[in-house]
Write a protein that binds this DNA or RNA. Structure first.
Length: 215
DNA sequence: CACCAGGCAAGTA
DNA sequence: TACTTGCATGGT
């Protein structure tokens, strides 16, 4: 019996990169904030923004919820789209206050479906951000799809180019065991190989650990 | 200098 | 429904 190609890709990536220890961040709250700030932005910029929040003691739900819009925007300026992201952070905190009495752990221990639905109801939280929060803050077994996932897998003809978020996510979900630890590592590995070998303009590379893998 | 990054929502037809 | 555009800083 042949091993599934998605499993093969995981093995190739894991053998090449080793365990990733994601998500960068010390607390679920910090990880959640990072999930919003990373949207279409380099992680290096997000680090600066998070450091600014840390310096002003804003890395907790009550303190950030109390902070003014201007102060938040000023802190997260390096992460880009700072006006819209400040609003998104406030929307997210507001939902947690209203739906979960301001308790992040309460959101994270809710059922996956209910927590996801509440996250998606927030303006500024889309499917990827919601799933990243569910997986990397709450260890829910949901596979996080991102631009690298689509690019790497379509470029290797493992999924059709026009594959959408849910369709792509389903490919992983139905081929792999529902294991949050596996999903955690796999997504991180895909981002890694995407950054190194599957940029928008770089078409192909001899050193790519996925060289020769085709659907 | 141009281009891009671990998206998302609003606007247009 | 299916495209297009605005949002913005900092690294290469």
């Amino acid at each position: 019996m042949r091993i599934d190609v998605f499993q093969q890709v995981y093995d190739l990536l894991f053998n090449h990169y080793g365990p990733q220890k994601w998500w960068p961040g010390d607390t679920p709250f910090e990880i959640m904030i990072g999930a919003v700030l990373i949207q279409n932005t380099h992680w290096k910029n997000v680090t600066k923004a998070i450091n600014n929040l840390q310096e002003r003691n804003l890395l907790s739900l009550p303190s950030l919820h109390d902070a003014s819009y201007e102060e938040i925007a000023d802190c997260i300026r390096p992460s880009g789209y700072y006006n819209i992201k400040a609003k998104r952070l406030r929307n997210l905190l507001q939902m947690i206050v209203e739906q979960y009495d301001g308790d992040l752990e309460s959101l994270l221990s809710d059922s996956t479906d209910d927590a996801r639905e509440n996250l998606l109801s927030v303006k500024g939280i889309g499917q990827e951000t919601a799933d990243a929060i569910l997986l990397y803050c709450g260890n829910h077994p949901v596979f996080v799809v991102d631009t690298y996932t689509h690019r790497v897998f379509s470029r290797h003809n493992l999924v059709p180019d026009e594959c959408g978020y849910e369709e792509l996510q389903e490919e992983f979900t139905c081929r792999l065991p529902s294991d949050s630890k596996l999903f955690n590592e796999y997504h991180a590995l895909i981002v890694n190989v995407g950054k190194d070998f599957c940029k928008k303009t770089t078409p192909l590379c001899e050193q790519c650990p996925l060289k020769g893998v085709e659907g």
